[in-house]
Amino acid sequence: MSRVGTFLKQYWMFVALGFLLVYPLIWRAPYYHVLGFNTLIVATAATGWNILGGYTGYKSLGHSTFFGINAYLVAITANELGWNPLWSAPLLALGVTVVALVLGWIMARAKGSAFVIATIAMLLIFRLLALNVKSVTGGAPGLSQPLAPWSPEYSRMPFYYYMLFWLVIALLVSAYIRRSRFGLGLLAIRDDEGKANMVGVNTTLSKVLAFGVSAYFIALGGGIWSYAQTHIAPIFAFSILNDVDTVLATMLGGLGTLWGPVLGAFILIPGSDYILFNFGASQFHLAVFGVLMVVIILFLPRGILPSLRDRLAARRETSSAFTGASTMEDLSDSQPRGEVPGREAPAP
């Protein structure tokens, strides 16, 4: 193992963060900042979604409800009260989280497929409300809000760095939850809800909290997106395609892992930008996207990171030359279903 390799293995997180910090300075055209920003929104949303979908096993296809609600709240408060979205987005997202907790509490009764359809129905209801309550939302044409005051060449950079900051927060929260007693409860619910209940996990409370936490990071992204976009309309703010991006990013990277959702977003968003650019002359890119999705689900059902881990584990079994603690293991600290998640989980 070369020295560079060892260094990367130990400090890759900081290398990655450093790269993300200097990225906008190297690629200076605002387009790259927009692409980065879009990617970070999905990475943050996916990290949040993963707490419910990955750790707890409840896969929502309607969480962009909260994206849309906060997008509207931020736009309305900016227009009516002059609130600056940079601080109002995270603040209002807390309010949205309260809404999510209530909805989560109602939906905690639904399981499996019923839960998935219920989340879709929730999204459709809120989209229709946004279309209908015209006095508040402006109806189908949507709402405009003031432009960010920064000069054009740099106007996208603050959004990028701001979202990067929130991605780091989301990851810290996700990592903390994963190692906490609460997180253990979530994993237990995923593996067998009935059993989790029996060993004393308050499953309803845990599910509702997971629902709320995941909603927070998605709502946050919606609020900041609203400011960056300056104009929002119901069909784009409450779009199931936002959910699909989030869910796909998570599954591609590794469902239930800490880093998988981020890795997935960094592959998916620039990748689909590229597919759209090159196959976009017709609707063929949808087919390309669909087939890729099928292939990924068929061949990488657990995502890239867990599969990589399996691969490495298999190699380690065959070759004894591979020694030492592997950081790859930390990269993809997912527990296969049914396994007791005991290794690195001291009770707080």
């Binding site: 499996g112 609707q283 949808l286 087919a287 669909g290 999705m293 099928v294 689900i297 059902p301």
Partner: peptide, 27 residues
Amino acid sequence: SPVGDDPGLLVLLTFALAITLEGVLGS
């Protein structure tokens, strides 16, 4: 059938089939 019986995964898979069909028909 190769995917197993995770309802979330199957919903996504059939969704993928749906947009594939949409893309092909649209093209």
